[in-house]
């Protein structure tokens, strides 16, 4: 059984078909990569599976359950977490508050009483320590550096304990040392049983990090396989280089 799958997914904006009859299944327990030229529909696919936009046709399933057309917060509740292409944190909330926005299965009673119970606070601090931000918990998120914000965004997503994490360009705009740190973190989290889907332009990162790569071109998957297989695929070269 796969964690996330899409079948015959189609989405058009006006006359432009961004995603066309796409069928993709992710490997459970793997770091899945999604690559493709600019405008090939990767981000639209992300937005479709996270419920940010509704497909014109096709189905999205998570763990075998049909979640097509669900609101984003319900999809998040089904165990899917995501980061954004241009890192998004809550600027005028503190780092700790950022962490506590996303906690699954909140009871009504807990909503009124304080920011979080002891267990949630401990977990939040645990994640902050893991990404190296524990000393910043009372700082406002907007005062963090871009790299720190990227780490905070990832940590906040992990607070909801998602089985599947979608990373939209985790290496975008960050320095090489931090890219390596994020990659190491993803490997560790994957080893702990979390499935990943990574959209990335940095080919070194994709090839080094991913177990399974799907290549998109003009709204549809054109190839899938291990990084080595995909790199050797003529259609992929054609899509990227136009040869």
């Amino acid at each position: 059984m796969t964690t996330l799958a899409v079948h015959g997914l189609t989405k058009a904006f006006g006359g432009v078909v961004a995603v066309r009859d796409a069928t993709v299944e992710l490997r459970e327990g793997a770091v899945n990569g999604l690559i493709g030229p600019n405008g090939s529909g990767k981000t639209t696919l992300f937005n479709l599976v996270t419920g940010m936009i509704r497909p014109d046709a096709g189905r999205v399933t998570i763990g075998g359950r049909d979640v097509t057309g669900w609101a984003p917060h319900r999809i998040a509740g089904a165990g899917l977490g995501r980061t954004f292409q241009l890192c998004r944190v809550f600027g005028r909330l503190t780092v700790l508050e950022n962490m506590l926005v996303a906690v699954r299965r909140t009871r009504l009673r807990e909503l009124a009483g304080g920011l979080g119970n002891r267990a949630d606070l401990d977990r939040a601090r645990g994640w902050l320590a893991r990404v190296g931000l524990e000393h910043l918990e009372t700082a406002e998120a907007r005062d963090l550096s871009y790299g720190q914000q990227k780490l905070l965004e990832l940590a906040a997503v992990l607070m909801a304990d998602p089985a599947l994490v979608l990373l939209d360009e985790p290496a975008g705009g960050v320095n090489p040392a931090l890219i390596e740190r994020i990659a190491a973190l993803v490997r560790d989290l994957n080893a702990e049983g979390r499935t990943f889907l990574v959209v990335e332009h940095n080919m070194d990162l994709v090839m080094g990090l991913c177990d399974h790569v799907v290549v998109f071109d003009r709204g549809s998957p054109i190839a899938a396989g291990t990084p080595a297989e995909v790199q050797a695929d003529g259609r992929v070269l054609e899509a990227y280089l136009g040869v």
Binding site: P72, A76, G77, G81, F90, V101, V103, A156, A160
Partner: peptide
Amino acid sequence: EDEDKAESLGV
């Protein structure tokens, strides 16, 4: 601060 982001975190 960011409504879509909040929604994506399960709010």
